[in-house]
Design a binder for these strands. Structure first.
Lengths: 253, 253
DNA sequence: GTGCATCCGTGCGATATGTCAACAAATGTG
DNA sequence: CACATTTGTTGACATATCGCACGGATGCAC
């Protein structure tokens, strides 16, 4: 079935894009700012914003709009519909407790990985990660593992199309070398990252398969960078990850 | 300024209500199911759903729709715009580490408290709480403290209007007694809950004030229920909470 | 104050879209 | 298999809404 203009609602698309214009850099916006950021006409942006305010998704002080926590319902509605988080959470808790490190599960959404479950132990990252948090896929261990599950050509075009922004001096940004690392992850069945997201942080990830053998998500451990070489992570942590991977493979879908 | 029909966008309101029909109980819905749940005409629900699918907020297999992680962006957009989580996170981390217990900050949204930041230690609750998670205000320590900041008449009408569902045999559901406990929280400046949310779980909360003296949020500690009487929590944990409360009062807004 | 710039709210014609009804296909039922 | 029910889709019409343009308000520089 082909989608025609008759089958869609422009107003909804516009309103959602308005919500997405609110970022950490632009938490309070006037009508004109939202219009500029979303590419909508001011009159249209105004209608979207007033509608959001009327429904309780936004506050309006007569000059600026801000989003309200009500918007969070939309996101939690989504998380709640995913069976994955609830299935993996007990395993994450066991894993992180046994190893004394933070364990997480994420899935791919566009160019980002999205955390869907997490069991945090001591803090090694400067920012607090939580379900819903996003990180670029290309420089994270879970991202590499998830990208490795896609067709190679797809990955290649993705890496070429978007600018890859280095987050630390160690971040790999060369598409060719990234592709090589992703291939390596595909062949080995795991990925190790050494301080490419944040200095002092290493991580190791494995894919999570469902019963059909499809990649459903990625599981990782976040570790502080020590003196031992990054390759030691594989020996020390991979067996535990593989064990959870095998268990989840039995129960998923 | 009064809001007229000319100033709003029906399509946006309908689309958002469609998103909210997706819950843990209804993760996969057909057009007719969404129409019934949202009260929209089938044709209208269909347009909303096709639009969401077209924009990548939903998947469609020809029969059922599901939400995609892209919807999470809406929620995280909201969390990212809130200055509070980032301001309080370091304090939460310090507090939870020093006491070895989980600390959280939440705000009020309607009848629910919404977690906006959390630093988890050992697990005492059966469900994983995270930023964006919701619990009913009336039976939580943070909820009591936040309700105490509202006008008494407002609280009274809220407690009367909604049915108060007991979560454990210990949950208070009598409006009059709840009002008394909320008044107590207002007078004392803190609230203690003993296994009203979940058996085995106690918690103590204080309000977080901004520099103007307005209640900006609530801060709590989640504790496992032990043999000591619940009143002992006050002596053991209140000083640390008061300290963070005082520090945050200086830096907020 | 004047001129300039920006922003908000509003009126209007053109278009998009909601509502309702009808219909065909799918599904359930005896 | 015949029948009743539900579901997805389409068409037509009334209405909502878009995008544009204008006027008034506000703030700023000089």
């Amino acid at each position: 079935m082909t989608i025609t203009a008759r089958d869609t609602m422009g107003g909804l698309a516009k309103g959602l894009s308005v919500i997405e214009t609110f970022t950490a850099d632009h938490p309070r916006q006037s009508i004109a700012e939202v219009a500029a950021a979303s590419g909508l006409d001011r009159a249209t942006a105004r209608r979207c914003l007033l509608t959001l305010a009327h429904l309780g998704y936004a506050d309006y002080d007569g000059k600026f709009f801000t989003l309200t926590p009500r918007v969070l319902r939309l996101g939690t509605a989504c998380l709640a519909t995913m069976p994955l988080p609830q299935m993996v959470q007990p395993w994450l808790d066991k894993l992180s407790e046994a190893l004394g490190e933070s364990a997480s599960v994420s899935i791919l959404d566009g160019d980002d990985i999205v955390y869907v479950a997490r069991s945090a132990q001591r803090k090694v990252m400067s920012i607090a990660l939580m379900p819903g948090s996003r990180l670029p896929a290309f420089c994270t261990s879970m991202g590499r593992v998830l990208l490795a599950a896609l067709p190679e050509a797809e990955v290649e075009s993705r890496l070429r199309d978007r600018p890859l922004q280095a987050r630390t001096p160690l971040t790999l940004t060369d598409p060719a070398r990234l592709l090589a690392r992703i291939s390596e992850a595909r062949n080995q069945g795991f990925a190790v990252i050494d301080q490419e997201v944040e200095l002092g942080l290493r991580s190791i990830a494995v894919p999570i398969f469902d019963a059909h053998g499809r990649v459903a998500a990625a599981l990782n451990l976040g570790l502080s960078a020590r003196e031992e070489p990054a390759t030691a992570l594989e020996i020390r942590y991979l067996p535990a990850l593989r064990k959870v991977q095998a268990e989840l493979r039995k129960v998923l879908r």
